[in-house]
Design a protein around this nucleic acid. Sequence first.
DNA 1: TGGTAATCGACAACGATTGTTGATTCCTCG
DNA 2: CGAGGAATCAACAATCGTTGTCGATTACCA
Lengths: 149, 149
Amino acid sequence: MKTPVELTELFRERGLKVTPQRQCIFRLLHGNAAHPTAEAVYAAARAEMPTISLKTVYQTLNDLAEMGELHVLDLGTGSGRFDPNVDAHHHLVCDRCGKVRDLHVDFPDVRVPRGKAQGFRILDTEVVFRGICDECQTEDETDKEKAHA
Amino acid sequence: MKTPVELTELFRERGLKVTPQRQCIFRLLHGNAAHPTAEAVYAAARAEMPTISLKTVYQTLNDLAEMGELHVLDLGTGSGRFDPNVDAHHHLVCDRCGKVRDLHVDFPDVRVPRGKAQGFRILDTEVVFRGICDECQTEDETDKEKAHA
DNA sequence: TGGTAATCGACAACGATTGTTGATTCCTCG
DNA sequence: CGAGGAATCAACAATCGTTGTCGATTACCA
Ligand SMILES: [Mn+2]
Ligand SMILES: [Mn+2]
Ligand SMILES: [Zn+2]
Ligand SMILES: [Zn+2]
């Protein structure tokens, strides 16, 4: 995603107004690697602007996604995750708590072999590693200790 | 997924009754590579049993998933896709129509490099190739021709 | 400064999935 | 075979995430 200043330009060029609500969301997302849900962005925005509406948050997130400044990930965690990092990368997903972490590794061998594409024109390749995050593993161990006691 | 006959055994062992509705779903799923939604299974089942309820379909699909006989894929196509093929494989997904095809290729290089796992214990690796399927490409071309005319 | 886009609140609606009820069917085990 | 209990049905309501609608108000920006 571009910087808040660049996004301000971009929105104006497109005839979209640059409101404080939108600028707030620009700032919250810039460099954000937490892959927040819309609700999470909403919560963070309300800390600065108590009257911002969830509708406005969705509106701005969708605008950014349409411009290609944001990717929406559907990783089976119930709700969409917004990713301001639009460069090619992959993800680690916690099956327990839904946490999403970036994995910046290139897998040059991951291609559909000739003759196996079944007519598809491939536009994108995602690798998703699913498992249990550190925090959820610690929880599990704590539970075991309690069970012993 | 096991064969309908084996699933009949398995259900009985678990104290679950083997009803005609469940057997119908066993048959519909066995060897099914279409990755159907619950609604699609429901539609196919109703062709044989007009009074089967959507509730019963979900119930049976969830039972099979809990037993590990079925995988539920969330590929961002709006609804869950049920996959009776529980062996390791990957998927081609059409961004336009949601079609899902199997890709039986092993990618041995696709592993999280040591030191990049960020505390995750990895349990599963999925590769998803997104693009446009053959049918949707043909549609596009037809549209172009119409535009020229 | 004015025209118009954006926002707000308060609520309804959506699609996918799950829950509830009470009546009915029918599988399974002895 | 017969009894007991699970499963199913229909007909709803409810959930969650997301989008739509409304009229009134705000405020961006050419
Ligand atoms: Mn990311
Ligand atoms: Mn598959
Ligand atoms: Zn976790
Ligand atoms: Zn398609």
